[in-house]
Design a protein around this nucleic acid. Structure first.
Lengths: 111, 111
DNA sequence: TAGTTACGTAATGAAATGGTTACCTATTGC
DNA sequence: GCAATAGGTAACCATTTCATTACGTAACTA
């Protein structure tokens, strides 16, 4: 996975509305754009912009049928991100996480 | 974890330079700002801005000693993100991941 | 103590992000 | 055919992001 692809996926995930879209599509695979829009107060165009971001980084797959566009979740990018971080930080987590978390929970972190 | 906190952590991770900083600090806990800056072509101020982003979302802990600032990785936010996504998408992954990953590795992904 | 080192901040500017309204095209249903 | 529906695009605007240069301050060192 290219650096720019990781950037794009993380950037896409760094927005609550886009994460909500993913959740909605996950809950109702094959749903349409307008059905997603109904769950938001923001404009249809704004949601479509979010959808385009999700298409670009391939978190959402889509196909046009008639005048509708059907949406599907593609979890592969998330999985790749997950692998990246667990691979690179897994050892660190395993070794130090418990202690650090303990200290943080006791308010002993030095922010 | 608040939505805005998730946003902040993912936003922070959505930048290759900031991820590189995390990798550097992970490889050399307690390293200083200037030692991190040496690994980049961009200006010291730009890197310090990235550091501030990482401080704000608590991916980096830091303490000033003399005229130096020592940096430490705090993997708790990453762990929380990890938990968030595996909790919400775990079932989906569990059901389809093996097959998808297998297909991806064989170059048969459906992008 | 004078100079270098390490870090911090201010001012500035280009580009990206995220939203809006207005309008346009294609499909469906009556 | 005509109106309603579903989606797409264009133009615009405010804010944030991300970089720069210039300058300031505290601490180490020769």
């Amino acid at each position: 996975m290219e650096t720019t692809e990781i950037d794009a996926v993380l950037q896409a995930l760094a927005n609550a509305d886009r994460r909500k879209i993913l959740d909605l599509v996950k809950a109702d695979p094959g749903c349409t754009v307008s059905s997603v829009v109904k769950h938001f107060d923001t404009s249809r165009v704004a949601i479509m912009r979010h959808l385009n971001v999700l298409y670009d980084c391939k978190l959402l797959l889509h196909e046009k049928v008639g005048r509708s566009r059907h949406l599907y979740l593609n979890s592969v990018p998330i999985q790749l991100i997950y692998d990246r971080w667990t691979d690179e930080y897994g050892a660190f987590w395993g070794g130090q996480l418990a202690d650090i978390k303990y200290r943080v929970e006791r308010g002993e972190n030095n922010d």
